[in-house]
Structures are given as structure tokens and as C-alpha cells.
Nucleic acid binder design. Structure first.
Length: 570
DNA sequence: GCCGTTTTCGGCCCGACTGTTTTCAGTCG
């Protein structure tokens, strides 16, 4: 049991305590304990052995005992006891926006609602109207929330699907009969959200491979099993299709099952015009059935006098035209990224010190990081006061003086306030190397109001980057209504970069806008929005999105060897 | 449940928003 598991259980305990209506500060003590554990940089087992756990701020006698029990025995009796006081499905209600512990408790105790299905039914029967604290509007919102959950069900974030798929591919690759194996489908195209996983594998015989596939520990049930195709549902609910093809068929199958459907349709059309036929088994001459032999996908596109189209671009958004005239972009890659911008430190809601962040980035080979904590209005995230900023800048300068091959940039993620102004005055803003302006409050404005608000923020001469431009959270929250086109145009005029926020839940700006923005002359930063060291990895997800959006390294500011952005202001 | 004392009990993070109320509770970030 590692730190993350422990923290997650402490959080659960806090939540159940709230549900039970216990002293809210007791619940908070567990939340605080979880945070304290997450930010520990020493091994938990070591701390327990040395008896130093109780010295940690926020961990008292009770939490120390509980954590010790968790780590040494793998479970906690108190937690199991708490969990058993409610039906397990009751916790699902908390994922509906507007429902917190208090309301869920009331629904359970007054209407005996124990799961989302029962809640939906109760709403239909108007049974929430008479409940204290509920009303018509609340009931409508709950129904809307349930509707959204249904839409999002059976959809998975790229990162979750990718990790599962990669684990499966690794296992399949280890089978002696496997010759080639790859992820295909929307996951290979790096879509931000996927509904299932396709894996293509080449082998001369499939039986042993299928046996291995259905016996993987990730697999919950086998939906269908055949010689060439087997479908399973994983324990997280995700469907995975495995297709086994003959080695010579592999490139065609990989190409076909990578899609997209629209890309394939156009390719088939082009083939037909040339008297050819393309499908998962090959590229054939329609007349005599002759198979064009291909070693890889590059060969397939070459048959049609096209350059190789990377999977990310296969969305029928002009890539086939561009490939015909050999004008595809030279897509940015992970190794082009030279520095990480938008990183939170312990000063606001990050868990690492500036020194730890810098050392880790340096060890990964980056040339610079841009520290950008939250601004003063972001109370929930411990936003920085002016005094904090002076202190932080002094610390950064002191650490920087020790490096000649690395730089820590002084930045801020400043809130765009309701009226479009930026959270600090010009004097403060002028001290930073870069200013990310982001919206974290007042999401429910009209589209016009929100657009005006952001446009005004972009007029601030100190702003250098617009952070997560739509505020969306994939599979959980729509972005705020905003006229993106106007925003991009203004950003282009004012030389303000647009963030591609690489957090797996954000991936915002959406890739569908990237090419449009690029054509307007907009520059980008790919940022991890990191709150800990682990999330530095997210930058690769941002690179995926940039690639999907046709971007090249020249379009991305943090692909420069050194940070060359003009300071804002005059 | 934790912490720090005015040392054994009282305070603990804030503000906006929404929908419920008729002065505020619950949720969210």
C-alpha cells in the first residue's frame, strides 16, 4: 500500500464522516491528513519504523495509528466499519453536481434512496419537491446531472485507456506466437476520450494468444471469442477488441482499425477512383485481385502517392489533401519540449518545493521550468499574497544563482476576475517573467459576457499566456460558453500564447481549434499544470494534442532552448 | 481529529453562487 492508496482511503473516511453528519472538522482532519501524506517525500514504511509519522503536521495520534494499521496490515478496521454503514452505491450520488454529503444524507434518510437509478425515479415522481432544502430547480438539475452521467458512461480518459491498453499489449507481446502488436483505433489517434480499445496483433496461429488475452487479470468478462477476433470487458468497464491477423496482413489491418471511419471512407474512395480496393486485408487491384504488398503503413500511403500520415492526423480534416501534395506538417514531438511552463509549488496548492521541482526537471533534461502558483483570489488553492510573491522571487533568484545550465522562471497563474481584470496590480505583474491568465471562478456567465471578460484580460499588457481557455473538465464538466474564435484572434493580435493544458482532464485548448489558431498566427505553450513531480509526465499528453492539432515545434514557445518570450508590459 | 495554547478546551480557510428561503444552507473551486 503506497502513499496514494493511503491518502485516498483517508479522503474516503473524511467523506463518509461528512455523510454521517459527524463533526465537520473531524472530517477535515482526515482530508488534511490525506494531503499531508501525499506531500511526504519520505517512504511511509520508513517513517513508521522510525516512529516519525506523528511529527508530520496534520498527523496526530489517531491518524498515526490508522495509517500504521493500513500500511502494515493492508486494511483498516475503522474504515471497513464506516463503509459498511451505507450501501456502497450511495457514494455514486456524490458524483452528481449539486449533491454533497448533506443532501445525499437527506435523500438516503428521508426517501431511502440508495443509488442513482432510485434517485432518477424519485425525481420523475417529484418526490424531491417536499424535501427540506430541495425544490423544483434542484430536482431538474439533478436529472440533468444524471443525464450527463449516462452520456459519459462508457467513455474513458485517454490516459486511463492508454495505461490499460499498454499493459495488455505488453503482455500479448511476450507471447511466443506474437510477431507484431499495436494499439489501434481512436486511442492510437490520441483522441482525448475513447469509448473502447482496439488492439491489432499479427501471428501465424491465434489460439494461445487468445487464451492469454482472456485470462489477463484486468479482464472481467469475455463477450465473444473467435479465431480472429475476441472481445472482453475489463474490470473498469472498458471494452477491448483484439484482432489477430496473418503477418502479411498486419499493416493493412493496423491501418484499417486505426481509422478514423471518415479517413478510411475517403481513402476507399480514392482507391476506387484508381481501380483499387482497400480494406483490412490489403490493397487490391479490383480487376485481377492482385495484392499490393506492403511492409508497413508508409508503403500503403505510397501506393496512393501520399506521404505517411501519422495516426493523430487521420480525422479527415485535410490530411489526405496535404499528404498528396507532400505538405503535411513536421509534427512536434516530446523531445522537442525544452522547458516546462505552468507548475505549482508548495507556495500555493502544489506539493513540492521550488528546489525539488527544479532538480527533477533538470534531471529529466529540461532547460527551464516556469513556476506559476495561484494568485491571491484563489483562496481555495492558497493563492499568493504580495508578500508571498516577494518571498518566492527571492527564493527563485537564490536557487537560480547556483545553476548555469538551468533556469527557474518567475511566473504566476493569475485569476481573471469577474470583470476581466487581472488579480494583481501592474507593479506586481511587472516582476514576473510570464503571466498565465486563467478563469477559476464565475463560470456561469453568458457567452458574450465571458468572451468580453477574457478579451479584456488579454488587453492587460502583462499577460503572456491564456490558461486552459475553455475550463472544461473531460467527462465531468463542460467548458464555459465562450467565443473561441474571437479570443484566438485577440491572442494573435496581442502576441499572447494559448495554453495547451496537458492535464488529462483538461487537454484544453481542444485540438480541433489548434490548427485554426495556428493559421491565425497564434503561438502555444504545452504545459503540465503540475501540482507534483509525477504530473510532469502529462506533458506528453499535451504533445499528443498539439500533434493532433497539426502543430510543429516552431509553434510552441516552450520548444525553444531558452525561454525567449518578451516580458509583458511596455 | 489536530493543534496550540490564555495547558486541557476552543477554534479550525474563504467567497461566490444557487436555490432555497425570508435570512441561510449546501456546494464548489
Amino acid at each position: 500500500m503506497d502513499k496514494r492508496d493511503v491518502a485516498s482511503i483517508l479522503n474516503d473516511i473524511g467523506m463518509i464522516l461528512e455523510l454521517k453528519g459527524e463533526n465537520p472538522f473531524r472530517a477535515r482532519a482526515y482530508y488534511n491528513g490525506a494531503r499531508a501524506i501525499e506531500r511526504l517525500d519520505v517512504d511511509l514504511t520508513t517513517m513508521i519504523e522510525e516512529g516519525t509519522l506523528g511529527d508530520v503536521d496534520g498527523i496526530g495520534k489517531t491518524l498515526e495509528d490508522n495509517i500504521t494499521e493500513l500500511v502494515t496490515t493492508g486494511s483498516l478496521e475503522y474504515y471497513e466499519e464506516l463503509k459498511s454503514s451505507f450501501p456502497p452505491t450511495l457514494f455514486d450520488l456524490l458524483s452528481i453536481p449539486g449533491l454533497g454529503p448533506k443532501r445525499v444524507k437527506s435523500l438516503y434518510e428521508n426517501l431511502n434512496i440508495t443509488n442513482i437509478g432510485e434517485l432518477e425515479y424519485a425525481c420523475m415522481e417529484n418526490r424531491l419537491l417536499d424535501l427540506p432544502g430541495f425544490g423544483q430547480k434542484m430536482q431538474e438539475n439533478i436529472l440533468k446531472g444524471i443525464e450527463n452521467l449516462k452520456v459519459y458512461r462508457d467513455k474513458y480518459l485517454y490516459i486511463e485507456a492508454y495505461e490499460k491498453a499498454q499493459a495488455i499489449v505488453d503482455k500479448l507481446r511476450s507471447h511466443t506466437d506474437t510477431i507484431d502488436v499495436d494499439i489501434a483505433g481512436s486511442l492510437r489517434r490520441c483522441k482525448e476520450v475513447v469509448s473502447d480499445v482496439d488492439i491489432v496483433l499479427s501471428a501465424d496461429k491465434s489460439e494461445g494468444i487468445m487464451d492469454l488475452f482472456v485470462s489477463l487479470s484486468l479482464v472481467e468478462e469475455v463477450i465473444a471469442r473467435g479465431e480472429t477476433k475476441t472481445s472482453v470487458r475489463l474490470k473498469n468497464g472498458m471494452m477491448v477488441d483484439l484482432r489477430v491477423v496473418k503477418p502479411y496482413e498486419y499493416p493493412y489491418a493496423l491501418n484499417h482499425f486505426t481509422g478514423s471511419k471518415e479517413h478510411n471512407t475517403l481513402m476507399r474512395h480514392i482507391a476506387k477512383m484508381r481501380g483499387l480496393k482497400i480494406n483490412e486485408y490489403g490493397v487490391f487491384n479490383t480487376k485481377d485481385g492482385h495484392l499490393f504488398s506492403c511492409r508497413d503503413e508508409k508503403d500503403i500511403y505510397a501506393i496512393f502517392d501520399m506521404e505517411y500520415i501519422p495516426p493523430e492526423l487521420r480525422e479527415n480534416r485535410g490530411e489526405i489533401e496535404a499528404a498528396k501534395s507532400y505538405k503535411l506538417p513536421k509534427l512536434v514531438s516530446q523531445s522537442d519540449v525544452k522547458g516546462l511552463i505552468h507548475i505549482h509549488s508548495i507556495y500555493s496548492d502544489g506539493v513540492n518545493t521550488i528546489e525539488e521541482l527544479a532538480e527533477y526537471a533538470r534531471s529529466l533534461g529540461y532547460n527551464y521550468i516556469g513556476v506559476s502558483d495561484h494568485s491571491k483570489s484563489a483562496y481555495y488553492a492558497n493563492g499568493l499574497t504580495e508578500e508571498d510573491i516577494y518571498r518566492q522571487i527571492r527564493e527563485i533568484e537564490s536557487i537560480n544563482s547556483r545553476y548555469d545550465d538551468f533556469e527557474i522562471l518567475k511566473g504566476i497563474e493569475a485569476d481573471i476576475l469577474k470583470d476581466g481584470s487581472i488579480d494583481y496590480d501592474d507593479n506586481i505583474l511587472s516582476m514576473f517573467d510570464f503571466v498565465i491568465a486563467s478563469i477559476h471562478s464565475n463560470f456561469t456567465m453568458t457567452k458574450d459576457e465571458m468572451t468580453m471578460r477574457i478579451l479584456k484580460a488579454l488587453d492587460n499588457p502583462y499577460v503572456t499566456i491564456l490558461g486552459h481557455p475553455t475550463g472544461r473538465l473531460l467527462l465531468s464538466r463542460e467548458g464555459y460558453e465562450v467565443d473561441i474564435e474571437k479570443i484566438l484572434k485577440k491572442a494573435s493580435e496581442k502576441d499572447i500564447a494559448i495554453e495547451i493544458n496537458a492535464n488529462p482532464y483538461r487537454l484544453d485548448l481542444d485540438w480541433r481549434w489548434c490548427k485554426i489558431a495556428k493559421d491565425m498566427g497564434v503561438k502555444f505553450v504545452i504545459s503540465p499544470d503540475a501540482h507534483d513531480l509525477k504530473s510532469f509526465e502529462y506533458v506528453s499528453l499535451g504533445v499528443n494534442i498539439a500533434r493532433k492539432g497539426w502543430l510543429e515545434k516552431e509553434d510552441i514557445l516552450n520548444c525553444s532552448e531558452i525561454w525567449e518570450v518578451d516580458k509583458g508590459g511596455i
